[in-house]
Design a protein around this nucleic acid. Structure first.
Length: 543
RNA sequence: GGUCCCAUGGUCAAGCGGUUAAGACGUAGCCCUCUCACGGCUGAAUCAGGGGUUCGAGUCCCCUUGGGAUCACCA
């Protein structure tokens, strides 16, 4: 068969040859050991936390080695594409300070010399390589009916399982050039398939940075390279793009391991060197029955990156948490270097967990509390305001009008060596400090103590003094003594029945009157910020 | 059904032939204390099971079990 002729028949109008293309994509000039990584999502919806997890790894590896991290949008499936999804992806990356070194904003700008960064714009490139493979007898046209959609696949699979078929060599391999010409004349569409040399039985050794050497069956399938709409499949685009764009390390989910041999065969056919691969574990969630399954957009709110923005989590917290999941050395490093930027962490690709980690929001919360506790009140205010402007509009006016007051509230027990750590996301500020913004609507008081509660408050009207913290507390103690409460806790513990209670009890009553809760930060601080008038007002609401 | 991946407390995990099996989150208790939080201290809790190899196995090998992935002109 004259493959050269066949290639001309199939691709009469190609704009470029492979040689012309490769001239446009020169080898990257990289420092020693510099790694080029990429995030290559398909724009099918909102950004998934699993994708972002890979981003964290990609970015860390590139950053650490002084290399390049770029974004490539894999929009080759027009049916699944969602308008605006690529914008969301880029916006999400920006929110987390992960603006890639190279990327494309459709219709706005292209940053980097290895674009286009949308695969749909690279059609001519894939066609050039497909034509080359056909001309070399390594690929062929297939005119068969498409297997399309999941139902089609399931049907085909069931048939295969029941019959135990392992046939994967395509019948169109054997088409003569005359037959092909005939089909073309009839206007039949075709896909380009790889003419696989493997038999699917032999084992080959493949390498993964994480898992080391793996032994898998070689590829034996005549896999589709170019679909009948001339868009590339993932495997083909991956080989072509990552070669041209100079990717040195491919980070992808471990669901790709089974098709790794195919990718190797395509690289070989194309004469491309193989990049390094890191197959990352999928993030899991514990289910009600105790089992773990992949975190899913449909059932887990946390699977969708918008969840964290909406809840008001600090981007920094999520990055720390995910880095912690990705690299087991991180936690120890962070302990040693509590104030360093995470970008200084010597991330290496060898300490990424091989297990499937379970997403643990409690741990995230803890990391987040630590981070937020280090912020100044002013910084908290700015972040709270920014969050409200995006997700809690009803609070924006208030925040702006009463900035000074809000900052004071946010500063309760903050900017100290051992700051409080009760806020881990901005959406909880108004709940946590509800009593600072309005009088309590409910009081945590046991009805049997109602009389004592009211007695204390009635008396406290005379003893309230905010001039100084010591004076304030001395007055409370004085009042406690007068009302029959123990002022010495040791004496109280020795003989609790001799008293109505202790000073702590008295404080509890006052605290409940002011805040509605039995627990709160420092009472004196709260009262001072609230001001004497409001404090008296709140007491008057009760007695 | 074929192929592959994974297996240390509730969760994240250190460990890479000899350890009293780290640490963190969570949890229980104590201390500090006007409560809560913070902080400090203490505790409970782990090598899936079975065979080998070895003087010695969480660590190496095999099997079993369990969990997961994949087998599209989807990525």
């Amino acid at each position: 068969m004259d493959y050269k002729k066949l290639s001309e028949l199939l691709f009469p109008n190609n704009k470029f040859t492979v040689e012309e293309i490769e001239k446009k994509y020169p080898k990257r000039k990289l420092k020693n050991c510099a790694e080029v990584t990429r995030f290559a999502p398909s724009p099918t919806g909102f950004m998934h936390i699993g994708g972002f997890f890979q981003c964290v790894i990609d970015r860390n590896i590139a950053k650490r080695s002084g290399g390049v991290f770029y974004l490539r949008i894999e929009d080759t499936d027009k049916k699944r594409e969602l308008i605006g999804a690529s914008t969301i992806i880029l916006e999400t990356l920006k929110r987390y300070g992960y603006l890639p070194d190279e990327y494309e904003e459709k219709g706005v700008k292209v940053v980097g010399n290895y674009g286009p960064y949308f695969q749909s714009e690279r059609e001519e490139i894939y066609k050039a390589y497909a034509k080359k493979l056909v001309a070399e007898g390594k690929a062929f046209p297939c005119f068969c009916r498409k297997t399309e959609g999941l139902n089609d696949v399931k049907e085909k699979r069931e048939k295969m399982f029941s019959l135990g078929i392992t046939e994967d060599k395509d019948v169109c391999r054997n088409l003569t050039i005359e037959q092909i010409e005939e089909y073309l004349k009839d206007g039949k569409t075709f896909a380009i398939k790889l003419k696989s040399k493997g038999n699917g039985q032999n084992k080959i050794k493949v390498h993964d940075v994480l898992k080391g050497e793996l032994e898998i069956q070689e590829n034996g399938e005549d896999a589709v390279l170019l679909k009948s709409d001339f868009m590339p499949t993932y495997a083909f685009a991956h080989a072509v793009d990552d070669f041209l764009m100079g990717t040195t390390t491919v980070v992808r989910g471990e669901e790709w391991i089974p098709s790794y041999p195919l990718h190797i065969e395509i690289h070989e056919a194309l004469g491309f060197p193989l990049p390094k691969y890191i197959h990352t574990p999928l993030i899991n969630k514990i289910r009600e029955n105790g089992g773990k399954t992949k975190i899913s957009k449909r059932i887990d709110a946390e699977a969708d990156m918008r969840f964290f923005a909406r809840e008001g989590y600090e981007p920094e917290a999520l990055i720390e948490y995910l880095t912690n999941l990705a690299n087991s050395k991180f936690e120890g490093w962070r302990k040693e270097n509590p104030d360093k930027s995470i970008d200084e962490f010597p991330f290496d690709g060898f300490n990424i967990t091989a297990n499937r980690p379970v997403f643990d929001i409690l741990k995230l919360n803890d990391i987040s509390k630590d981070i937020i506790s280090k912020y100044t009140a002013e910084a908290c205010y700015q972040k709270l305001l920014a969050w409200a402007e995006e997700f809690s509009e009803e609070n924006v006016d208030y925040l702006k009008k009463d900035k000074e007051y809000v900052v004071k509230v946010l500063n309760i027990d903050r900017e100290k060596p051992k700051p409080r750590k009760d806020v881990y996301k901005w959406s909880m500020v108004f709940d946590t400090f509800d009593y600072m913004f309005s009088a309590p609507k409910k009081y945590q008081i046991d009805e049997i103590e109602r009389r004592k509660f009211e007695e204390v408050l009635r008396a406290y009207k005379k003893y309230l003094d905010l001039s100084d913290k010591t004076v304030w507390f001395d007055k409370i103690k004085e009042m406690a003594g007068v009302l029959g409460y123990a002022t010495d806790n040791k004496l109280y513990k020795q003989n609790p029945n001799a008293y109505k209670g202790n000073v702590a009890k008295v404080c509890e009553f006052i605290r409940v009157a002011i805040t509605g809760h039995k627990d709160s930060p420092d009472l004196y601080e709260i009262m001072t910020i609230l001001g004497e008038d409001k404090v008296r007002e709140r007491i008057s609401l009760i007695v």
